[in-house]
Structure formats: C-alpha cells, structure tokens
Simulated assay, not measured.
Amino acid sequence: MLEPLSPLAAYLAPSAWIDSDHPAVAAKAAALAAGRVTDAAMTEAAFVFVRDAIRHSADYRQNPVTRAASEVLAHGTGYCYAKAHLLVALLRASGIPAGLCYQRLVLDPGNDATRYCLHCLAAVRLKDWGWYRIDPRGNKAGVDARFTPPTERLAFPVTAPGEVDLPGIHAAPLPVVMEALTRHTTWNALYDALPDVSL
C-alpha cells in the first residue's frame, strides 16, 4: 500500500484547494454522514456522491474548470483532480484522514502517438483497513470504480508501458496539477494540455 508523505494531521487539515472548512463543504459532509456510524459508511456515502453526482468535465464537456472543493460542489463538475479534491475535503470535514494519489496513464490507448497524463484519485485512512485508495472520477463504459475495502476497485488499471502508480499519499495537490487547472479555463483547453510528469 502507498505510504503517507506527511504527519497524519496534514490529512485532516483544510487548505486553499481542499477547503474542508468551507460552509457548503462542511454542510454537505454533515448531510452525507447523517445516520452513518462508521468511518467506512461515511466514506462510502461521500465517495458515491462525488463519483455519481459530480459530472466529469471531459465526459460531459462541461465548464468551468473547477479547482477548489467548494467550486466543484457549487458547479457540480470537475476533472478527476477537482473531484478528488472534493472527496478529500468531504472526508476531512467528517474527521476522516484523506489525501491524494496519482497515476500516470496513457490518455488515448488507441492512438499511434502515445500521450500520457496524470490521473488523480483519493486515499482514505479507515480504522479497520488502514490507507485505502478510491477513485471518484465517475463511471462510464469500461470504467467501474467502487468502494469495496479492503479490495481496491479503481477506475483504471496500470497495464501499459509507461503507466505507473506514483508513490505516496499527498496531503496537498501536486503543483504541476494546480498550474494546469489554474491556467486553463475551459474543459477542452485543459484536455489538450493535461498535466504529466517525467518518470
């Protein structure tokens, strides 16, 4: 399993992009947690909400490009990065440690010119299972991410040459991701310039 890169307190704290202290985020977290006793039940409710109710910007060709968790909640859309920010913020608002994980994936496997991009998902620290990765990017044909601890059911398996699960659980988004989200204002402009890292 991936290891955290920061002290546990960092995975509970609000920040500019993971603004778990925003009133709307805190209220949504409380509503999702209502009547649920365990951290696993609260996590599943938050995961399913972000996966299913927040539209993936590229899947739906939807603007604006959102970044902070509160923006994602307000507009109901976001790329994988932004959706993960919202899920992590909802979990932190409920007192559940959570962070960000990244994969480097082939963007268009059927294309002759191989193009890679970063994909973002979340990791949550559950009392019964420890750190566990979940992917709220949104299901579609060929993508079936689920909450099934301790077994991971992620959106994308790492199988092609050059693809990799990047190490570590990050308390804050990677700078290269935030630079791309901040520079581009439309879903298609961002799609043409998705962030990547060199291995």
Rank of each mutant, 00 (worst) to 15 (best):
A16Y: 11
A16T: 04
I18T: 11
D19E: 11
P23Q: 03
P23G: 00
A24W: 06
A29S: 14
A30W: 05
A31N: 09
A31K: 05
A31P: 11
A31V: 05
A31C: 03
L32M: 13
A33C: 05
A33W: 01
A34Y: 01
G35C: 05
R36C: 01
D39E: 10
A40G: 01
A41W: 01
M42C: 12
T43V: 00
T43Q: 03
T43P: 01
T43F: 00
A45I: 02
A45G: 08
A45P: 02
A46E: 03
V48P: 06
V48Q: 11
V50C: 14
V50I: 05
V50K: 15
R51W: 05
R51A: 12
D52N: 15
D52L: 12
A53I: 10
A53N: 11
I54R: 10
H56C: 04
H56A: 10
H56V: 09
H56P: 12
H56Q: 13
D59S: 12
Q62N: 11
Q62C: 13
P64Q: 10
P64D: 06
P64M: 15
V65L: 15
T66Y: 08
R67T: 15
A68Q: 07
A68S: 11
A69K: 04
S70V: 07
S70A: 13
V72Q: 01
L73S: 07
A74D: 02
H75F: 11
H75I: 15
G76R: 09
G76L: 08
Y79V: 13
Y81N: 08
A82C: 10
K83N: 04
A84Q: 11
H85T: 13
L86H: 09
V88F: 08
L90H: 08
L90V: 07
L90R: 14
L91V: 12
A93V: 09
S94K: 07
G95K: 05
G95V: 04
G95E: 08
I96S: 06
I96D: 06
P97H: 09
A98E: 07
A98Y: 03
L100S: 06
C101S: 11
C101Q: 12
Y102R: 10
Q103Y: 03
R104S: 12
L105Q: 03
L105W: 00
L107F: 03
L107N: 08
L107D: 06
R115S: 09
R115W: 05
R115G: 05
Y116I: 06
L118W: 05
H119A: 09
C120L: 04
C120Y: 03
L121Y: 14
A122K: 04
A122V: 01
V124E: 07
V124P: 11
R125Y: 09
R125E: 13
L126S: 03
L126I: 00
K127H: 02
D128L: 06
D128Y: 00
G130N: 03
W131Y: 12
W131D: 02
R133S: 00
I134Q: 12
I134E: 11
I134N: 00
I134H: 13
R137Y: 09
N139G: 01
N139T: 00
N139D: 10
K140M: 15
K140T: 14
D144R: 13
R146W: 04
F147R: 03
F147H: 11
T148P: 09
T148Q: 13
T148R: 08
P150M: 03
E152G: 00
R153C: 14
R153S: 14
L154T: 07
L154P: 06
F156Q: 04
F156T: 01
P157S: 13
P157K: 10
